[in-house]
Nucleic acid binder design. Structure first.
Lengths: 388, 388
DNA sequence: CCAAAAATGTTTCTGAACTGAACATATCGG
DNA sequence: CCGATATGTTCAGTTCAGAAACATTTTTGG
């Protein structure tokens, strides 16, 4: 029943958050630009910027040469001194990187596996990497950990319900990592976090209503942005397009499938680059037919979600992007055919742009979410125990 | 880029809005209850309640006998003095009612038509009804008009793109009504407004993630609530489940259809009550088969949306509720079969409860939205021109 | 090279809004 | 009737944004 906005102090929190978010999402801004962007008084922006600098969330730098009349305005930039650890355990490898508020990635490492990592191994890897922070990145402050898991994650407590490709079932990952490291931990579904990344920094920038679908070797995952906010649903399991039954009665990720494309091409396995090249080069009628079939089914599924959610952009990643890009305007037309006319007017279908950075950026963004929402709340507790 | 929370005055607005919303949605509350519900100081609640009373949005009444120790706390109740006009033009009749902030309906009238009303007739009817306010409901203050239209409505300017059953195409209804009456006007899709009504006062109370589907004579419409907020989508066309292609390849509202039920039953037309009775009473195998077929298709569609949105409740209205209610636990099981297991855990499927009041309540709620969000903003301008 | 204009930083004061403490009031229970 | 309890009421204290006045830095134009 109680939302926000109690005392006057909440105003300060909100305004700090607004300024921090602006520089985090749009990069360095002069104080005068922030004044215009927020509508706040320039004296207020002055104190806000100073406070954020004190909290080591931004740096206030020398003004840049602007060749314009008037006193130069200092730049307010997100700092790389405050970082989170972004983690993405996958079947063949686990990626980790420290990501700064300025989005720079430090100490990006990729640990190859011969078999999927166990939860215990993953926790140990994260913990070890955290310990290496002091030596590898002196002067950096770690304020949280974000983990992108390819599976269903309960949002409330970062509990991995089922990650079939990793073989993880009912793993209290957030709690395990938090206990091992002492840092606040956020665990999320990989596609959901990918959607967040594309929304904040990628193909869906500036769009308030976004549908994101990613096609990978293990299936189709997705994420939604509604009213500019990521949608987890009641428990955090939203975005599971892959398990929908499509118009042909099949499960979507069975009928629209990277594996089936490879089979038709006669390839055993291939990277996305190889697959894309093979698809672009082929003239074999059975391959073209399979591509077209998958395009049709995918288009109908996208049309359905467009009818229901009326997004302004649908972002496709992985091999789904390849299917669409083969003849983008035609693909959009096929989707539009099944969408109510007005819905189709404002709808754009586009490809994801963040490539392999996407999941780490998304995981980092999730880990930063708390500071971004309340800059005062987190920063004061350096090695604090997690909220869980 | 600028959201909210500029000055300290915004705090007052937010807190007024919070208190007003609580009494609007939950009915009369004592000031001490409001203190607990909001977490605000009791002196603050005192001034907030007084301000809202001054604005004629609430009434502060004598304390009720509570048989408890301590000084009795005055009741803060939503007032019926401040009303909106809720309107629902339909093929066979147009319904209008003045609805108070306490949700009481005054002067509820139903104007029968022999043919669908034209926009001009509807505007005239609304305008006339507004004029009758002074004589019929002296002492009441009209602060807005909400119109529920069975068709696609552009949210930004209340522009009716296409209302096929009324035969309306590209009608600037909000502007027409606003010009004719001088009051702020909100126009919305009927099913979207129905979803809002069920969320605030009906079967979806307290749920933050809701899918609402209504089955009527003219097809299937729907609405979504995500994060506790109604979802309009990029342009306001969200919720059009009816035009999705279902698992059988047909358009949902073609294959799951009230008309087809009636045909199978051998009825020409029937009210919902008659249809429900006929369905309940039938033992004819072809009718049972048709019911089962529609249930299966509907269940698969609901499963799809549950996978994508992970709602905590799906609310069904009209004949869709009849289909489900025939064997509710079995229907839920069929849906759950196609839903990822964790999604299904928290999912409830239930029937709408507001019945024929739903659309007028939803239209009223939309018209109240502005005051509820900013009690200071609206009330000071009695006959003000609309924002459009 | 210097003065005016322009834009922004900085300082100080004011007003708005909530909190908390002290006091007042109303009800219940014995 | 009195004490305990809960709440209303009043008032001083704190926080914060805004506004105004002044200071600073740069460009522009002679």
């Amino acid at each position: 029943m109680s939302d926000r906005a109690l005392g006057v102090e909440q105003v300060r929190r909100d305004n700090l958050a607004r300024v921090l978010r602006i520089v985090h999402e749009n990069g360095p801004q002069s104080r005068s630009e922030l004044t215009r962007a927020t509508g706040l008084n320039r004296s207020t922006i002055g104190t806000l910027a100073a406070d954020l600098a004190e909290l080591q969330l931004v740096e206030v730098r020398e003004p840049v040469l602007t060749r314009r009349v008037g006193r130069p305005s200092p730049m307010v930039a997100p700092t790389d001194r405050t970082v989170v650890l972004a983690v993405n355990p996958e079947v063949d490898a686990t990626e980790l990187a420290f990501v700064g508020l300025d989005l720079t990635m430090h100490h990006h490492i990729r640990v190859e596996h011969t078999r999927p990592p166990t939860p215990a191994e993953t926790v140990a890897l994260i913990s070890d990497t955290c310990d290496s922070l002091a030596s590898d990145l002196p002067g950096r402050r770690l304020i949280g950990i974000g983990v992108a898991v390819p599976g269903l994650v309960r949002a409330a407590d970062g509990f991995v319900r089922d990650a079939p490709h990793l073989g993880w079932v009912e793993v209290p990952l957030q709690q395990l990592v938090a206990s091992a490291t002492g840092h606040p931990v956020v665990v999320g579904n990989d596609a959901n976090l990918g959607a967040i990344a594309e929304h904040v920094f990628g193909a869906a920038r500036g769009h308030d209503h976004v549908v994101y679908l990613n096609g990978g070797a293990s299936g189709i995952g997705g994420g939604l942005i509604v009213h500019g906010m990521p949608v987890g649903g009641a428990s955090g399991y939203a975005g599971e397009f892959g398990h929908n039954r499509a118009v042909d009665g099949e499960v979507l990720e069975t009928t629209v499938s990277r594996t089936r494309l490879l089979e038709t091409l006669g390839l055993a396995s291939a990277s996305d680059a190889v697959l894309a090249a093979a698809l672009a080069g082929t003239t074999a009628p059975e391959v073209l037919a399979e591509i077209d079939r998958q395009r049709q089914v995918l288009a109908a599924s996208l049309a359905n979600v467009a009818n229901v959610l009326d997004p302004s952009v649908i972002v496709l990643g992985g091999f789904l992007a390849m299917l669409a890009e083969r003849a983008p305007e035609d693909f959009t037309a096929v989707v539009a055919e099944h969408v109510m006319a007005p819905n189709a007017e404002d709808l754009r279908i586009t490809s994801a742009v963040l490539a392999e950075r996407r999941l780490l950026v998304g995981a980092a963004e999730a880990a930063f979410a708390e500071v971004l929402a309340d800059p005062l709340g987190v920063s004061l507790t350096p090695g604090a125990l997690p909220t869980a």
